[in-house]
Design a protein around this nucleic acid. Structure first.
Lengths: 231, 231
DNA sequence: TGAATAGTGTCTCTCAGACAATATCCA
DNA sequence: TGGATATTGTCTGAGAGACACTATTCA
């Protein structure tokens, strides 16, 4: 292998959550060059004896403190254009994480600060490296996956109401959904959710049934984005 | 960067085509260790100043001789489990290529032989490395993408009949489709195909209109796999 | 003419979307 | 009681699947 050019391999994370009716992403403010002071995706180098998915899970836990079983983590794509990192030839494997709303993150060792930012305000943020491209891919992946998988439940706590699930869809898709049709569709899609047997308390209005994530990993029929329905 | 572990980065290709009503994949028989004599995905090391997609396109052209504009090439996923390559720490970025039927491939420099194998017979083939996992991912990606994109046209020559497009779907999905409903659906989906204005000649039966790929890159409504319709 | 394939029309069933109506809580 | 939210029911239109029927070629 000595005759082949050495690459550095990193993982970067697009960590999304829904908080206060806004789709938010976990970013760190870089404390070291390059891009010192800029917002960037959390991430880091892959250990020589470490699997890629393990490295992503490790970084996610380091940055957020969430146990690995919570939420959802999947590979998003790999970015390796020469020159994307001024330090050398760095190929990064991007992962997408979907998490329920969490307490504020702890700053990692190489981060001056870490915080949730609404994705609607990312345009002003001037992300480091090619992280704007990676983020865009993560957002589109998340929006698409809500259509045909039950991954919206990854944004929710273990038990949640249909209305909570609906706000997840509305937030990620930036569109309003009819509460009545949504309710019928979710409960009518086999394996999407299953009743927890309990109800909410203390809110305004009629108490809502609580549900847990179901066993399906593919939705039939899928939930369709209103914006794409018109052809 | 000197303090970070050096990786080798390769690209591997899942190259699919439809020939003689069988879904086939381009494989090379390895002429050098490791896995000497085994079938493997075509691929190779990424140049130090080369973009990942460029490396994939280069390998594809080297192995098949097709111009880059023909067919479809997209990133599939990245595989980097330690130990997946006995030569060292190799991370491979897999790409998926969909091509029209082509003349037999030319053997590359590091391949004792290259040939199209029906995917139905891959189980016996004992692929090298973790290429069976990568192939499985490529097949599932291809099957899924036929549902909501016009990529079935990538398996066809520039001008094709609806029946030809239908055999592509039937071959990739391993299921029979009603010719009449298929015709109505394809021609009724805006941007999927556009008439070329010519018809076939010399075949049995009524001549068929020829079509070209349309401008859409997403199908609304999508084509749905019969096997998944039942829920 | 008959076999073969291309393409159209029709029917039914399911489902998405609009929205009325009912249920059950809190103030 | 009135406001708010949850949940169910009804209607309509679009589209999928089944399949009869017509169109056009070759042998």
């Amino acid at each position: 292998m000595a005759e082949y050019p050495p690459f550095a391999v990193t993982v970067d994370l697009v960590v999304l959550t829904v908080r206060q009716d806004a789709l938010c992403i976990l970013l760190i403010r870089r404390g070291i060059p390059p891009y010192h002071g800029r917002w960037a995706l959390p991430g880091g180098f892959v250990g020589f004896d470490e699997d890629l998915a393990d490295a992503a899970a490790r970084e996610l836990t380091e940055e957020t403190g969430v146990p690995e079983a919570v939420g959802h983590l999947e590979q998003l794509g790999t970015y390796g254009t020469p020159g994307r990192d001024p330090r050398g030839r760095v190929v990064t494997v991007a992962y997408l994480a979907l998490l329920p709303d969490l307490p504020p993150p702890v700053a990692g060792t190489d981060a001056a600060a870490a915080d949730w930012l609404p994705v609607s305000r990312i345009a002003e943020a001037q992300l480091a490296f090619d992280h704007d491209v990676i983020l865009a891919a993560g957002l589109e992946r998340a929006r698409a996956k809500l259509e045909y998988t039950p991954l919206a439940t990854a944004f929710c706590p273990p038990e949640f109401t249909i209305a909570r699930l609906r706000t997840v869809y509305e937030t990620v898709w930036s569109s309003q959904l009819d509460p009545r049709n949504f309710h019928r569709k979710v409960t009518g899609t086999p394996g999407f959710v299953e009743p927890a047997g309990r109800v909410t308390e203390g809110d305004r209005g009629r108490p809502a049934q609580l549900y847990r994530r179901g066993s399906a990993d593919l939705l039939h029929p899928p939930m369709l984005r209103p914006s794409l329905t018109r052809s």
